[in-house]
Simulated assay, not measured.
Amino acid sequence: MSKQRRHGAVEPHEDYGFFGPGSVVWKVWGYPTSLTVGFQRAVVVEELDPPLVAAVHRTQGIYQRPRTRYDRTLRYFAMVAFAGTREVCRAADVLVKVHSKAVGQLPYSEGTYDANDPASQLWIQLTGWHSILYAYERYGPGRLTEAEEAEYWEACATAAELQTCSPDDVPRTREGVRAYFERMRPQLSASPIARQAMNHLLRTELVLPPTPLWARPASMVVARAQRIATIATLPRWMRELAGIRQSRLLDALVVPVMKASFALAHLSPRLELRLLGRLSPSTVPVVAPIKLDIPPLRDEVLTPAEARTRHGYPKPAEAHLDLRARQATRVLGEGRAPSEQGLLESQEILGPLTS
């Protein structure tokens, strides 16, 4: 309790969530590479999937409210890794409602898209977890041990239970993850809307808060460095597909700069939280109890199944089927705009839609 009194502005989580202290998830996701370069890489790479980018383009959220969209998405990423199980189950449940409005016709090929489709959700899951690990390895302490890596991909499968995809489809090895991306490669496409989204999401300056005139040069340097660092993690074939240019010299030069910067930031939990607050204010309350070593109300780690039973939530794949069917009928059958129900409900959990 002394720590809670000393850091009275920080609320403890209800429990340790799905992973907890000592886990490889907390080790990797708790390093400053994860919620910066790792997260940015994930959302950029995701856009190469035609159904996903069609959903993103339809909602226009990344263009109309880039800061709040980035903030809310990063908060959810962090919640899965660090928040208490009740809070995460609630967020996962409302996210199904949010995604229910992202349905429609594919703009550049036959067929439809649905943000709750298990294949799209698996793509998001593996792109996210792979990007977080890749950034940690490139700009952080380096590769995990064999045992840690096995634990990491098992944890990825655990987290997949919070999506509409099946944890059985999550590879459990580095080789399996590589094989998944190779299978996906023929399906990926840098359509005009994909290129637009990828280049937009690489503009870190769009998600930074307003900066005083005297501080703008430093802010632009930070944004430019993160863009360079993120592009440097993209394979050449992906850059060529998306029309993203960056020299091999920049790829090499940015590594020691970012490694030193992240190592320095990691020396001070309070500095990490201040920097995170610049990118994503609503994520700070999720991460702060872990960074400041504030124990939860219950000293326990649950499985997703245990958490659903305790807190009364269905599996995301089985949640809100009536709403999802109504949304599909409105959009695909009647040609009307989808309901905003889930998006409005999500504000209490994921943060406001405007700032």
Rank of each mutant, 00 (worst) to 15 (best):
A265T: 09
V56Y: 03
L297A: 11
E148N: 08
L162M: 12
E318H: 11
S189Y: 09
A223R: 07
L208V: 01
Y313E: 04
I132Y: 13
S339T: 13
E87Y: 03
R245M: 05
S131R: 05
W153Q: 05
N116G: 05
Y139I: 13
E240T: 10
A305D: 14
T354H: 02
T204H: 08
A229K: 07
D322I: 15
A265S: 06
V28F: 13
T59R: 06
Y16A: 03
Q121L: 03
A218T: 11
Q347D: 14
Y31A: 06
L353D: 00
P281G: 08
S131F: 06
E318P: 08
D15Y: 08
V286D: 04
G22P: 00
P32M: 08
P338W: 10
A215S: 14
Q4K: 14
L241H: 02
R324W: 13
T164I: 02
S219D: 12
S247M: 06
L106N: 12
A190N: 02
Q187R: 14
V10R: 08
L292D: 10
R248I: 00
I228C: 01
A42N: 03
Q187C: 05
R310C: 01
A179N: 12
D251R: 02
M220D: 14
A307T: 03
V10I: 15
R67Q: 05
E46T: 08
K3I: 15
P186S: 13
L201N: 02
V255P: 02
P51M: 10
T354R: 02
R330W: 14
R298H: 13
F18G: 01
M198K: 04
V44D: 01
D15W: 06
M1L: 11
T211Q: 07
E154K: 11
P50Q: 11
R143F: 05
R298F: 07
L144N: 09
V170P: 01
P338I: 12
A78F: 11
T158M: 11
T68F: 00
G104V: 12
R239N: 00
S339I: 08
P295H: 11
A225E: 13
V287Y: 07
D49G: 00
L122R: 06
M184T: 09
M79Y: 09
S109A: 15
H13E: 15
Y70V: 01
Q246E: 04
A215M: 14
L122Y: 04
L250R: 02
L321M: 15
P186I: 08
P210W: 12
C165Y: 00
I231F: 00
L208C: 05
R143I: 03
T211H: 02
E146K: 12
S23K: 01
Q105C: 06
A225Y: 10
